[in-house]
């Protein structure tokens, strides 16, 4: 049984995760409505965003960490829908969206972990968040570089798509290998 202190401590990351998720969903929906060319897609993006916030809030409120992935996935779908409505222009803010998704997911998972009896050491938590921050910044830079290269190339040629597909398969295999090694 979780202690009162553990429950109250878990409220901080839960509130942060839900409010960041809501802010991201609202921002993406607003951007889509300003820049969008197709109204049904904008409506779909907004609906997906609202649903993602509900799923995320429900997951952290009911301590169902398995549902957090669905909330994050719906946020990503909202962004993908809005991007598809934007036309051919490349959105350079995409890596930032990815970084925010990671932060929201980590906050939500942390909230669920803190719902149960746990040992809290502030220094350790700080080190962990610094680690996550470093990785996210690096990942964002990688995403930005990739987008910059694509925009310089003037689009996505079919050959690059084939290479990308191969990279995806290679990445999944790499995940599987690392997963088995541990």
């Amino acid at each position: 049984m979780a202690s009162a202190r553990a429950t109250s401590r878990s409220l901080i990351p839960a509130a942060l995760a839900v409010s960041l998720g809501a802010a991201l969903a609202a921002t993406v929906a607003l951007r889509a409505s300003f820049d969008g060319e197709r109204a049904p897609i904008i409506g779909l993006a907004a609906a997906t965003g609202a649903l993602s916030v509900i799923v995320l809030a429900g997951a952290v409120a009911s301590d169902r960490s398995n549902a957090i992935g669905w909330g994050i996935g719906l946020l990503a779908i909202e962004y993908a829908t809005s991007v598809l409505g934007e036309g051919s222009r490349i959105d350079l803010a995409a890596p930032l969206i990815g970084a925010l998704l990671v932060i929201i997911a980590e906050l939500a998972y942390t909230s669920c972990e803190w719902r149960r009896p746990h040992a809290f050491i502030a220094a350790v938590e700080l080190r962990r968040w610094l680690r996550i921050g470093g990785v996210v910044v690096f990942g964002t830079l990688v995403g930005l570089v990739a987008l910059a290269l694509t925009s310089v190339a003037g689009g996505v040629p079919p050959a690059l798509l084939v290479v990308g597909g191969g990279c995806v398969v290679a990445l999944m295999v790499l995940f599987a290998v690392l997963h088995r090694q541990v």
Partner: peptide, 22 residues
């Protein structure tokens, strides 16, 4: 990543980048 390739939108791959690195 699959959506990025299917839709031909590099932004979706860029969204996946931080998660992939992590």
């Amino acid at each position: 990543l699959v959506a990025a390739i299917a839709a031909g939108r590099p932004e979706l791959a860029a969204v996946a980048a931080p998660l992939t690195v992590l």
